[in-house]
Write a protein that binds this DNA or RNA. Structure first.
Length: 586
RNA sequence: GGGGCUGUGGCGCAAUUGGUUAGCGCACCAGACUGUCGAUCUGGGGGUUGCGAGUUCGAUUCUCGUCAGCCUCGCCA
């Protein structure tokens, strides 16, 4: 192109005064004073003020916001009184000698301002304008930085980047697969990977030894603020390792990311809590430890309580737990009702509560409780006058989960979370199996390739005591990644399949290729996968994954930019040997 | 599939117990202006209040349905 830039719009300083330069960029703001006009030129790197005299440069008067132009001119130091210390380029002007319009722009549907309040759907439909806004572009830069640091650290540690297929065999296990029909094999389909799990394990059998990949994964499930149908994982796997080796690598990478992107010092090794401890202390397997309010056990005193809800819960094999909200006695009835609604959302029948006043316990269920309960509340929960105490009674899971969510509710609504802090921790010792009550069967907590630590019992027996080197990385209360030490012996893999009710024939059909690989000298191995989008979302302090994805999908799964998904042409169906019932047009 | 919130010029918002011509800021268009920096000043154009029914003399406002967006439970690591 002619008039190619010699500098970017963020570059020129007083030192450049007197130089003849060319800038390319977008017209940001135009301040026309008749005899002189100021045009702020913008690109990814910043803004530079261009000064033009419309008498000598008539085309300057034609300019509109978002036009793309080239300006040839001389850099001049501004008169002292006109310097702008707020802007990096605020000490100079570019005095335009000539100006070329490289492209015009329609009037954009919204303005390119840093603090745009435009509704998100429209921003995403016009992402090419939205991303000209600094904060949006900044999130993308942050994401790029994270990817760069990851690659650098992994290469430094001797990892090999290997790409795995996007078109692969479908598997009905886990999340729903996206299906891609095959033209060459009519009636047959590929599935898009939910993760490269079996490929990376196969790479260990290949002898790759240390593998990593930043890869796209796909899951055809309902979306959430932190869930997109396609997302990016940092996937890694290592041979001849134990859990600690995996932790060490991830810790090194995460420390580097937090340090270089946020300037935040994370100390390694990260704290570790077992799944059981996380559940009993915080009522959740991904605790936000940036605030207190730990849950405590009241089952022993509750078992002899006058309060039949408490006694009943314990007698039927359940538990009673408590949570103290310091200063919570000031909560209104409405605020308590809101907390109760949270508990109910998560399966609790209700939320028992009481307030501690200078005159002693008051309100809620206080009149049903006795000295033993009050003593336990004060001793174990540290409750004092002015506090609110809430209780969860029921099964172990329900009582703790409900209280855990009420705890998070208080954390947010009472502003208890120290946002300046970043807590990275490992949750370990997950059970390998969980009971699926609806389908009346055991299923894998993580996935069925995780190695049990204990000898497996006979099929049909209770598996709840079986644990694994199965771990999650949790950051600020978000689950960022999950991994495990895998099964590497075929006979052990077969035994797990048996417990999960997967027949030999079924296993051979779905995973036969992988089982064959295990048969030929698979090394012990393990790894983890981290959600890259979620990491960037936390770093950017965003409420939505959409903020850190260039072209994200809406909650309905629709791409607002391209309007996908869309109906294919009839010929496309035909070529695939497919047809679809016409959608209800009425 | 369930629950909640939202929908008014291009964008962001307002409109009293249901009331007469739906208002404001920004943007847009035209004009003025030699030092602005989210310039300023003057004037102007632009709306089937998401859509459809209903209640009413009268609906942006009330009811029902529907569509869309967001959050969420289920689902999903």
């Amino acid at each position: 192109m002619e008039n190619q830039r010699t500098h970017t719009c963020g570059e020129l300083r007083s030192d450049h005064a007197g130089e003849r330069v060319v800038l390319n960029g977008w017209v940001d703001t135009i301040r026309d004073h008749g005899g002189v006009m100021f045009v702020e030129l913008r690109d990814r790197y910043g803004f530079t003020q261009v000064i033009a005299d419309p008498g000598q440069l008539p085309e300057a008067g034609e300019l509109k916001p978002e036009w793309v132009i080239a300006v040839v001119g001389t850099v001049q130091l501004r008169p002292e009184e006109n310097r702008n210390a707020e802007k990096p380029t605020g000490h100079i002007d570019l005095h335009a000698e000539s100006l070329e319009v490289l492209n015009r722009s329609k009037v954009p549907p919204f303005e390119v301002e840093p603090d745009s309040t435009t509704r998100e759907e429209l921003r995403l439909e016009y992402r090419f304008i939205d991303m000209r806004r600094r904060p949006v572009l900044r999130a993308m830069e942050m994401r790029s930085d994270v990817a760069r640091i990851i690659r650098r650290e992994f290469f430094d540690l001797g990892f090999m980047d290997v790409e795995t297929p996007i078109l692969m065999k479908t598997s009905p296990e886990g999340a729903r697969d996206f299906i891609v029909p095959s033209r060459l094999h009519m009636g047959q389909v590929y599935g898009l990977p939910q993760s490269p799990q079996l490929f990376k394990q196969t790479l260990m059998v290949c002898g790759v030894d240390r593998y990593f990949q930043i890869c796209k994964c796909f899951r055809d499930e309902d979306l959430r603020a932190d869930r997109q149908p396609e997302f990016t994982q940092l996937d890694m796997e290592m041979s001849f390792v134990c859990q600690d080796d995996v932790f060490k690598v991830i810790e090194q990478v995460m420390v580097a990311i937090y340090k270089e992107v946020l300037g935040y010092e994370v100390s390694a090794p990260f704290p570790r809590v077992t799944y059981g401890d996380a559940m009993t202390r915080w009522g959740i397997d991904k605790p936000d430890t940036r605030f207190g309010l730990e849950i405590f056990d009241l089952s022993d005193v509750a078992s002899s309580s006058e309060f039949k809800v408490f006694r009943g819960a314990v007698e039927s094999g359940g538990t009673v737990r408590g949570l103290v909200l310091p200063g919570g006695a000031e909560l209104t009835r409405k605020q308590i009702d809101e907390a109760e609604a949270v508990a109910k959302d998560y399966g609790a029948r209700g939320l028992a509560w009481l307030k501690l006043t200078d005159e002693g316990p008051a309100g809620g269920i206080s009149k049903f409780l006795g000295e033993a309960e009050f003593a336990a509340i004060a001793e174990r929960g540290g409750a004092k006058a002015g506090d609110l105490v809430v209780f969860g009674a029921g099964t172990w899971t329900t009582a703790l989960t409900a209280l855990g969510q009420v705890r998070l509710h208080f954390g947010k609504t009472r502003d208890l979370i120290d946002k300046s802090r970043h807590d990275l921790l490992w949750v370990t010792d997950f059970p390998l199996f969980q009971w699926n009550a609806e389908e009346n069967r055991w299923q894998a907590m993580h996935h069925m390739f995780t190695a049990p630590r204990q000898e497996l019992p006979e099929p049909g027996e209770d598996l709840s005591g079986i644990t694994a080197d199965l771990y999650d990385l949790v950051i600020d209360g978000s689950e960022i990644g999950s991994g495990s030490i895998r099964i590497h012996r075929p006979e052990e893999q077969a035994r797990v399949f048996e417990h999960l009710g997967i027949s030999e024939a079924e296993a051979a059909d779905k995973f036969g290729w992988f089982l064959r690989a295990l048969d030929y000298g698979a090394p012990p191995h393990g790894g983890i996968a981290l959600g890259l989008d979620r990491i960037v979302m936390l770093l950017a302090d965003s409420a939505s994954l959409r903020d850190v994805i260039a072209f994200p999908k809406l909650a309905s799964g629709v791409c607002p930019l391209t309007q996908s998904p869309s109906r294919p042409d009839a010929s496309q169906w035909e070529e695939l040997g497919l047809d679809v019932a016409a959608p209800d047009e009425s």
